[in-house]
Amino acid sequence: MINKNSKTILDVRELHANIHGTEILKGINLTVRSGEIHAIMGLNGSGKSTLAKVLAGHSDYEVTGGSVKLDDQDILELVPEERARAGVFLAFQYPIEIPGVANSQFLRLAYNTVQSQRGKEELDPLEFDDFVREKMKLLEMNPDFLDRSVNEGFSGGEKKRNEILQMALLEPKLSILDETDSGLDIDALKIVANGVNQITNENNATILVTHYQRLLDYIVPDYVHVMEAGRIIKTGGKELALQLETHGYDWVSSGNQTNAGVTT
């Protein structure tokens, strides 16, 4: 929900980033306030997934200019785990599999690591079990998931649900969902969207990185940004996604509109 008086959670100014010497992000401006849901749309190669990874601190990308602030704290100098503890969460497009480690172990390790860093109490295995089972209900997950190895042999939908479960456990200030809808059938999409909708509230914010409008039927964004060639070339409300669906990306393409960001 949009409330102009809400505090700013994420403030990105003139962000530039390279990978292996090639510039991918060419001056991103983006302000996200608490309670808001932003969608970042664009064709493959527009830089939207790169933006997600750069915000989470992926070491393959080199930031060459600009600033990123989370709650007024500059996070560009922080390593990924410090950003996670500060409240950034990235739901991966392709979550990795960790054969040999039970999902319950992994989830508890992540949860307790973040909890202790935030000065909160850690949970022992029994307490955690109760806690995680409650959260799993949000995502209609079978408790069997806890005993299986992390993501190993999970279907696409199961992996994405496991990502959102982690989001529910870690209670981030800022969640970035990278192509969370890809590979999901409509039933799985509804379950995942429902989970996300229950986690979002007036104290956190969410960025949905997506190629298609489909997800936005179920998680309704307050703002839609269109990326092309490393820049946000158009920003609008939720109706912008529908217009894109109808007219295609060509409709906004080629720098004819360069209104970047949503600062007022």
């Binding site: 989470a56 992926h58 390593v79 785990e81 992540a110 690591t113 973040v114 860093q117 870690l170």
Partner: peptide
């Protein structure tokens, strides 16, 4: 990176 993004140190 996946594990770090979940709060685990390197």
């Amino acid at each position: 990176f996946y594990l770090q993004s979940r709060g685990l140190s390197m």
